[in-house]
Computed example of a mutant assay.
Amino acid sequence: MVLDIWRKIKQRDFAPIYLLYGTEAYLINETKQLLLNEALNEEEKDFNFSVYDLEDTPIDVALEDAETFPFFGERKVIFLHNPAFLTAEKSKEKIEHNLVKFEAYLKEPAPYTVMVISAPYEKLDERKKITKELKRTAEVVEAKKLKEHELINWVKNRAKSSGIEFEPNAIEQLLALVGTNMFMITSEVDKLALYAADQKKIDVNLVEKLVSRSLEQNIFTLIEKVVQRKLDEALRIYYDLLKQNEEPIKILALLAGQFRLIYQVKELSRRGYGQQQIAGYLKTHPFRVKLALGQAGKFSDEELASIMEMLAEADYQMKTGGMNKSLLIEMVLFRLKK
Results as ranks from 00 to 15, higher is better:
28 I>G: 01
138 A>Q: 08
10 K>P: 08
195 Y>N: 07
70 P>T: 05
106 L>Y: 05
190 D>R: 14
237 I>W: 11
79 F>L: 15
45 K>H: 09
110 A>L: 07
184 M>P: 01
20 L>V: 01
256 A>F: 02
92 K>D: 10
332 V>E: 02
70 P>F: 00
77 V>M: 07
52 Y>G: 09
67 E>R: 00
61 V>Q: 06
204 V>Q: 09
239 Y>C: 13
127 R>W: 03
59 I>E: 02
318 M>V: 10
63 L>Q: 00
210 L>C: 05
144 K>A: 11
200 K>F: 08
164 I>P: 13
321 G>Y: 15
220 F>C: 00
92 K>C: 12
269 S>R: 05
270 R>T: 06
174 L>R: 00
39 A>I: 12
166 F>Q: 13
328 L>I: 14
155 V>K: 03
42 E>C: 04
46 D>A: 08
16 P>W: 10
174 L>W: 03
45 K>L: 11
152 I>W: 05
209 K>F: 08
146 L>D: 07
65 D>N: 00
247 E>D: 00
213 R>C: 12
225 K>A: 15
251 I>A: 04
180 T>V: 14
235 L>C: 13
49 F>V: 06
287 F>P: 11
164 I>C: 10
87 T>E: 04
224 E>A: 06
289 V>D: 11
255 L>H: 00
274 G>L: 06
75 R>H: 14
124 L>C: 05
254 L>Y: 03
137 T>W: 03
290 K>N: 03
240 D>N: 10
252 L>T: 07
271 R>E: 08
33 Q>D: 00
121 Y>F: 04
135 K>L: 15
